Amino acid sequence: MPSIHETRRLPYSAKQMFDLVADVGRYGEFLPWVVATRVKSNDGREMVADMLVGFKMLREKFTSRVVFDAPRELTVHYLDGPMRDLDNHWQFRDVDGGCELEFDVSFTFRNPLFESLAGQYFDKAFRKMVAAFEERAAKLYGGEPA
């Protein structure tokens, strides 16, 4: 199962970064390949949302449950879509001069061939998405993206 772990130190507070990541309804404004999002329910502790992801003519819809522990962590559980599994976990800690963000993601495709192909591009796609979050933070909170 492909997975990745990333730790970043950013010049924003843990709450600012938590709020940015938790704002799933706005992902279509800045995340690559996210065509649209729809928040189906959100009680402040848990959200269920659909995300339409596309590249050229391909479009796939994912449904996830997002569990919040503001402003410390956010966990995403895959509910439905083209994959067998897709989970990610975010942790946010205030440190001198900003926050430390830890991110883990792992996935399994239903089709082993797709998983093999995706694994080859996963790191590059992940880096592009991390950069999009950093650029969004700079736009919302000021400063330069890392």
Rank of each mutant, 00 (worst) to 15 (best):
A138D: 02
Q16F: 05
A137K: 00
C99R: 02
F55C: 11
F107I: 09
R65Y: 05
K139Y: 07
R59K: 14
D104M: 06
F133Y: 10
D43P: 05
R110A: 11
K61F: 01
A118N: 11
D96I: 12
V21W: 01
F18S: 05
V48W: 08
L117V: 13
C99P: 03
T37G: 03
Y12L: 00
V76T: 12
F62A: 05
K128I: 14
P11A: 00
M57S: 15
V48R: 10
A146Q: 15
D19V: 07
R65H: 07
Y78M: 09
D23N: 03
T108I: 12
D19W: 02
F126V: 12
Y121N: 14
L31A: 04
W33D: 10
Y12I: 00
G143Q: 00
E134K: 04
V21A: 09
V105H: 02
Q120A: 15
Y121M: 15
A14H: 02
H5M: 12
E46Y: 06
R59P: 04
N88I: 08
A138L: 06
D96H: 11
R72K: 12
L101E: 08
F68T: 05
M1D: 10
R45E: 15
K56Y: 10
H89W: 12
N42I: 08
V53L: 08
Q120E: 13
V67S: 14
T7D: 15
L140N: 05
R26A: 15
F18M: 04
F92Y: 03
V35F: 07
R72C: 09
V105F: 06
A22F: 01
A14G: 06
E46M: 11
R127H: 13
F55S: 13
A132P: 09
H77S: 12
F68C: 08
E73P: 05
R59E: 11
F30I: 07
G44I: 01
G119F: 00
P82N: 03
L140P: 05
L79A: 07
R38D: 14
D85W: 07
R8C: 07
S116F: 12
L79N: 07
F109A: 11
